[in-house]
Write a protein that binds this DNA or RNA. Structure first.
Lengths: 252, 252
DNA sequence: CGGGACTTTGAGGTAGATCAAAAAGTGTGG
DNA sequence: CCACACTTTTTGATCTACCTCAAAGTCCCG
């Protein structure tokens, strides 16, 4: 499915803009740096639902910016069990780290249909050469992802099943709203219960039961492919959730 | 317990040298960059067993290089359960990422007695200013840690208890030997079974049983605070272990 | 209207947790 | 060198959170 060139360019610019805004939350960008990043060339690509767009072990020379939809980072055991180690939403440069480690250590897959914008490393490197501060800014962006992953390890290692699911829902609500969740918020939600089970290390059946528990607690609900926050406080309590690790610049 | 200044300096230099050698495995360093890093000033500090030397939420202005002993990165749930999200051995700059994210998202604690060398960010930043390539090299080092964490998430999410413990033992054997494990290798091993349980998300009692399983399989054994690799192939099979993610430059 | 993907429910099994206590190791002071 | 306290490992017995297997129900799309 092709979009008109202009439309496509607008999509990419909007996603780049989201990304740059998020960078600016945590780093100081000069006007020139800002402009350079917004002008990064790349290729728009529509990815069918649940398709790898970066394969495990592949040598990559482009970084993927999520334009629309959702992307997951997938690991896999020898016996074929999958584990999601990161979820990326529009405005996330999903594998910025590939600039410094170009051999992909895990696969990237679309969740639902997704559009990505592939930015060649050459251009990112050119930007870094022109503005050395960008290296640090990119590095910082990657470290926020690492902090999130560290929280996932804690959650999946030490929370009960309800806690794990609730924590994930709460995290996504925060990231999707770029702030604290609030009662009544709702978001597009392409994740199936199978995806949630791969992210939390549970079985799909058990995730289903935990979603019921969360619904019956009046915390959150997924209906019609949308996530509804019913009671933010309840959800946060269930998942022992504290948004500080997301580094969104919220009140401490 | 104070050591003579000269001795102390030698320790720090040896640890810095290990760190720089490891950087050189994955990045290309010029002679000047090499020399600058080896000359990084810092403070040697001996840490009592099981003491936090970086606290959660603290604002840090120094990065910690492990000189001797072992350090763990600890997360904690509200209910007090602990999860280890990284283990750092001598020659690891345990929180290099603090240069770009100075508010610590998790605590660092010694495992057994440890010696660390605290390198002020100012000097790391000065090095980065003098040699812009260093920013990228530091970033790459952090990304290797992130790749390891991602593997931990996969392991703890999707392997059985024996697999998790075996995988951790195999990883540590590789990192301690800077290569593949080999039958008969042995290493100092300050980790208690309680530590292993915090790293794998299991209970100490169950870790004990899994250690027995691993011993009875003839794969590995801990005796007298030393880890003995009995059969590398068996251990690797038990943990579904593939060393590539460690980026040690081994044969693929 | 039929087929595929996803959710939901049920029944029964098991890996790992929990609780409790003994055994072994380690360090300290007398 | 022994006695004591403390930490760590080991073992046993029981319990339960989550898994497995199976099938029905729902939604969506061609």
């Amino acid at each position: 499915m092709n979009t008109l060139p202009t439309l496509a360019t607008n999509d990419a610019t909007a996603a780049l803009s989201r990304w740059v805004d998020r960078l600016a939350l945590r780093s100081t960008l000069s006007a020139e740096e800002h402009a350079t990043l917004l002008a990064l060339p790349g290729l728009l690509e529509t990815i069918q639902p649940n398709r790898d767009f970066v394969r495990l072990g592949e040598h990559v020379d482009k970084a993927c910016l999520v334009v629309s939809g959702l992307a997951g980072r997938f690991g896999q055991t020898r016996s074929g069990a999958r584990q999601i180690t990161a979820l990326h939403l529009p405005g996330d440069m999903a594998d910025l780290h590939s600039v410094v480690l170009p051999t992909s250590g895990s696969a990237l897959q679309s969740i639902g249909e997704a559009v990505i914008y592939r930015v060649p490393h050459v251009h990112l490197r050119a930007a870094m050469s022109a503005f050395p501060a960008l290296a640090e800014i990119f590095w910082r962006d990657c470290e926020v992802d690492a902090a999130v992953l560290s929280q996932w390890a804690l959650r999946n290692g030490r929370l009960t099943a309800v806690g794990r699911v609730a924590h994930l829902l709460a995290e996504m609500a925060c990231r999707l709203s770029l702030g604290q969740g609030r009662d009544g918020l709702a978001f597009d939600w392409p994740l199936t219960q199978a995806h949630l089970s791969d992210a939390t290390g549970l079985t799909p059946v058990h995730v289903n039961r935990m979603m019921r528990t969360i619904r019956e607690a009046g915390a959150a609900d997924v209906r019609d492919r949308r996530l509804q926050i019913l009671s933010w406080d309840t959800l946060r309590a269930l998942g022992e959730f504290d948004a500080r690790y997301l580094q969104l610049g919220l009140a401490v």
